[in-house]
């Protein structure tokens, strides 16, 4: 994959062009890059650094500062568990521990086979559904440990069939 042939780089470039290749376009460019590539690999960060005339260290520093940016690829399926206050009060910490036990990963990581990522989010703002998680695109509320583990298993099974 090179910047010349991969059209995804063009999409990132479009964001930078729109903002006049100003250095302040960095964060917006990272957002676009994550959207089209799924995560921020080093080649993409280098590409942005070069186009915005910024040191690579600066781009890397910004990308690692903000939680929203991912520097590792995600699993095929993603479970994002809300760990906001309302969800915490209703047991999100126990759910997260159960997920970590069941799939042998820590929050923010993907399973070895690349099937599933377990992520935690600060707060969806859907506190009335607490505890709540998003399984791929589907939001499910009022979860408990068993229901969450089961939903993750189901998500992974569905793709095998």
């Amino acid at each position: 994959m090179t910047a010349k042939t991969d059209t995804r780089f063009k999409q990132v470039d479009r964001t930078m062009r729109k903002l006049g290749y100003e250095r302040s376009a960095l964060i917006e460019s990272l957002h676009t890059a994550q959207e089209v590539f799924g995560y921020l690999e080093k080649e993409v960060l280098r590409f942005i650094a070069q186009r915005l005339s910024l040191p690579y260290s600066k781009v890397y520093g910004v990308a690692t500062f903000y939680h929203f940016f991912r520097l590792k690829p995600q699993g095929k399926h993603v479970c994002v568990l809300c760990t906001g206050t309302a969800c915490y009060i209703k047991g999100a910490d126990k759910i997260l521990a159960a997920l970590e036990r069941r799939f042998g990963v820590k929050a923010g990581e993907a399973t070895e086979d690349g099937e599933l990522s377990i992520l935690s989010a600060r707060c969806f703002g859907s506190c009335s559904l607490a505890p709540v998680a998003v399984f791929d695109k589907q939001t499910i509320g009022h979860l408990d440990e068993a229901a969450t583990v089961e939903a993750c298993e189901r998500m992974c099974d569905d793709s095998e069939r």
């Binding site: 960095l26 964060i27 917006e28 957002h31 939680h67 929203f68 600060r122």
Partner: peptide, 25 residues
């Protein structure tokens, strides 16, 4: 519109401005 990156500190006024300028917040 400018997108934040999920950093709580960026709710602080000077950090937010630093972030809009394209830096670590």
């Amino acid at each position: 519109v400018r997108l934040g990156g999920g950093a709580f500190v960026c709710g602080e006024a000077t950090a937010l401005i630093t972030s809009i300028e394209g830096n670590r917040g």
